[in-house]
Amino acid sequence: MSNLLSLRPGGLALLAAIIAAGPLVLQNGFHYNVAILAGINAMVCIGLNLLIGYAGQISLGHAGFFALGAYASAILPERFGFHPAGALLTGAVVVGLLAFAIARPILRLRGHYLAMATLGMGIIISIVLDQEVDITGGPDGMPVGDLTLFGQVVSGELAWYWLIGALLFVTTWLALNLVHSPVGRALKAVHGSEIAAAAMGVDVFHYKVLVFVFSAVLASVAGSLFAHYNGFITPDEASFIHSIQLVTMVVLGGMASIAGSIVGAVVLTVLPQMLAGFHDYEMIVFGAILMGTMILLPEGAVPTLAKRIRERLA
């Protein structure tokens, strides 16, 4: 364990320092709100990046997992008297099982097929949430109760900031360990050449399923946290557009870069706030970022910049 811990102490320490320095920069509740949303997005993106960047599989339905987590946290405590933490875990387990059930048959196929299956699944989830008005409140959404942890209600921007900051740190630590473990190396091999990896004795299929399930569970947990934090959720959380936004964050930050995912999530959470006065152009900017990054910086912003800096220093 200590071996794993020491893998990337510099990066993790920096992340911790940035999170700890947050309150120096964040001046009001709105700033905290943006920072917390960025943190939640970053958690989802780290998981999604393991899938896209390391395992080379795309999901166009992660918003569906996010929304299932969110609705589990909204419905279970309210209707069935679950403890909020229990609801969060139940949501995560259900999403994990669902992801497992989808991944097993689909990941045997190649190329676009996971994209299609996850897309279809995400849309089905959003339609079900829309239609089941009696349970989900339908398109108008439903309110969500408070999150209690260890007998304490998590309330106030500062409490949420520290909670999300801590969880983001843990997620990053987990992901870095995964990436630099034998599993991560196997995944890299999968991305490079599946056949070569298989020939080397890597159980390609097993790892792909593992990463898919892990990323779905992360999305679900993030969804649960978001629901409690926001206090209100609508089926739009499951929308295709939301899935695309998550993919965009990963792509912009850089595939196969954990730091990139955090940067991508932060930039694309803050950017709409900066463009708030130009709502007509938000979609244009968003689309152009997606295309531009993929065409000009196919490795994403962070890895490309890092490479340039490395070259200059070398």
């Binding site: 510099g10 990066g11 920096l14 992340l15 320092a17 940035i18 920069v25 700033h31 943006v34 870069s257 730091a259 990139g260 955090i262 940067v263 932060v266 930039v267 803050v270 950017l271 706030q273 900066m274 912003a301 962070v302 890895p303 910049l305 890092a306 800096i309 490395r310 220093l313």
Partner: peptide
């Protein structure tokens, strides 16, 4: 380390802009 430092700079920049 450099990479994350970059990330930090980027984040700080974004925050400053906001």
């Amino acid at each position: 380390r450099k990479l994350t430092r970059r990330a930090a700079l980027a984040m700080a920049g974004v925050a400053a802009l906001t």
